[in-house]
């Protein structure tokens, strides 16, 4: 029964980590993407003649910022496989 209690803690913390991995990474990434887009639009409004260059660089830098969140998403995919199903929890609790 001792081991079951420890496993409960392990899975509770694992579930929290799985659920919070993407939101914690996404929050600052959203803010910085917004800042990048705002700066790009400002400079396009100031100098519409170079809007093509600015747009290409904006897309690439947005992709680079986004990749951090994508790494968190991959961690989420990996952790998600470690979580037991409801069926397994019920069986473990009964046994």
């Amino acid at each position: 029964m001792e081991a079951f209690g420890q496993a409960q803690w392990y899975f509770a913390i694992l579930a929290l980590g799985t659920a919070l991995a993407v939101p914690i990474a996404a929050l600052p990434a959203c803010i910085s993407q917004g800042r990048a887009a705002a700066a790009a639009f400002e400079s396009i409004a100031r100098q519409p003649s170079v809007s093509g260059d600015i747009r290409a660089n904006l897309i690439i830098s947005l992709a680079l910022i986004e990749s951090i969140v994508i790494y968190a998403l991959l961690v989420f995919f990996l952790l998600q496989g470690r979580l037991p199903s409801l069926q397994q929890i019920i069986e473990a609790a009964a046994g």
């Binding site: 992709a63 986004e66 990749s67 994508i70 790494y71 998403l73 991959l74 995919f77």
Partner: peptide, 13 residues
């Protein structure tokens, strides 16, 4: 690695 993970994560997600 970053090229591959970015593409996979975006499309898979």
């Amino acid at each position: 690695v970053s090229l591959a993970f970015r593409l996979f994560g975006n499309i898979g997600g």
